[in-house]
């Protein structure tokens, strides 16, 4: 029932990094924008290659924590909890950190003279931070610790500053130090946290410089937070403290990124309006959870055929998240997708489920594999034809279901 236009062909090894090419893609942001390279943190192009990359199974277990955390945040809003950051969240810490799913890095310079810092990007949080000297309880990192005392442009926010007041309003203030310096706290889904002094300094992004960039100077971390070689995290959320919000006046209220398909290829992050060629769907926002950017999925096509899914199933909307690995669908939508995909994969024997994946196949002995196309259709009829990397992971359909349509 499918025509050839409705299939993609994967060749053996296509799901692995067959070729390493770390050169920077040529990207032309509109005038006034800036682009920096972006790499997978585990691969050969990473500025801080992992000494021990997690297995796919472990990454999927961490991913489930992050997805559950995002869902709980909205559940808190729905229940009128208001301060969702303070909602009672209990997650098994032995499974790792929800932040551990973050996979993409950029390299920036902070301070005068600029000190190189390699930071994870995260569209799901706002406060950026780097580990600072002295750091009493921090993880090891590949680059030198950022040393505020060596930067001529560094300053700590006093507790009376408007930036500190804004931080308190977004429930990320953490009191005052004995020197009346504003303290921040970031908390993540597994109970991990980081604290330090809310500060500002010069930020170098590619060929551009941002003066008075606000960030957290991390002096203490607890839990399983970011046990790797990275130096910190760059928040790209929609809240007041994020890099995107801070630079809106300089580069414009827009940013874009391209996440590379393999660990051995490069991507990019652009601040400022990108060039043309996009299909666009309305962005959904929540004043209660300002960090997240939402979209409304309205249909799914498999092998060129639209699945029979009531649009009401998608009414809650979907979060665009750079940190969650696997797309989560309402249960009814996932069931329809899985059934249609299996129907288009009849030539391959089924395989055992793996973690959150339950639609898996046995590709052993295959030199190439044909898979049905998968198109996500967003509000306004915007159709996004997924790359093969976005359809199959390992040997499984790379989607997962929420526990029910209402979650």
């Amino acid at each position: 029932g499918y025509d050839l236009q409705s299939y993609k062909v994967l060749h053996a090894g296509a799901l692995k990094s067959a070729t390493i090419n770390c050169s920077q893609p040529k990207v032309t942001p509109s005038s006034g924008g800036v682009t920096v390279p972006l790499h997978n943190r585990h691969g050969p192009c990473s500025p801080v290659p992992s000494t021990k990359a997690p297995t796919l199974e472990e990454m999927l277990r961490r991913d489930q924590l992050r997805a559950a955390y995002i869902t709980r945040k909205y559940s808190g809003v729905k229940g009128g909890a208001g301060d969702v950051e303070q909602s009672d969240v209990t997650v098994p810490t032995t499974l790792g950190t929800s932040l551990g799913t973050l996979e993409y890095l950029i390299t920036v310079g902070i301070g005068s003279p600029a000190m190189t810092q390699t930071m994870l990007i995260d569209t799901g949080s706002d406060v950026s931070w780097v580990q600072c000297k002295p750091c009493s309880q921090c993880h090891t990192q590949a680059d030198s610790l950022f040393d505020p005392s060596s930067s001529s442009t560094y300053s700590a926010f006093p507790c009376s500053s408007s930036a500190c007041a804004q931080l308190r309003r977004s429930h990320q203030g953490n009191g005052c130090s004995s020197r009346s310096q504003c303290q921040y706290i970031v908390k993540y889904g597994d109970g991990s946290s980081g604290t330090g002094t809310y500060s500002s300094d010069k930020l170098v992004l590619g060929s551009s410089t941002v003066k008075n960039f606000q960030f957290g100077c991390s002096q203490s971390e607890s839990g399983n937070l970011l046990k790797d070689q990275t130096d910190g995290l760059m928040g790209l959320g929609g809240g007041a403290q994020s890099l995107a919000t801070q630079t809106a006046g300089t580069f414009g209220k827009a940013f874009s990124y391209c996440l590379p398909p393999t660990t051995g290829s490069p991507g990019f992050l652009t601040l400022g309006a990108a060039t043309s060629g996009f299909v666009k769907t309305p962005m959904l926002r929540s004043s209660q959870v300002p960090a997240y950017y939402g979209v409304r999925l309205q249909a799914i096509r498999v092998g060129g055929k639209q699945l029979s899914i009531p649009t009401s199933v998608f009414s809650a909307g979907s979060i665009m998240d750079s940190g969650t690995i696997i797309t989560r669908l309402p249960a009814t939508a996932y069931s329809a997708l899985s059934s249609a995909f299996k129907a288009g994969m009849k030539q391959y024997p089924p395989a055992q489920p793996m973690g959150i994946f339950d639609t898996c196949f046995d590709f052993s002995g295959q030199s190439s594999v044909s898979i049905p196309t998968v198109v996500l259709v967003f509000s306004g009829g915007v159709a996004v034809n997924l790359a093969s990397d976005g359809i199959i992971l390992g040997s499984c359909l790379a989607f997962a279901a929420n526990s029910d349509d209402s979650s």
Partner: peptide, 30 residues
Amino acid sequence: LGIIGNVQQRTLEVLYDVGGGAVGFKAGAC
């Protein structure tokens, strides 16, 4: 609530046009 994860975003350029209130997608960007 759904979540569009990073596996599905790979190779696309994903534009967060906050000022314009839109999310954009461009295929084959990297």
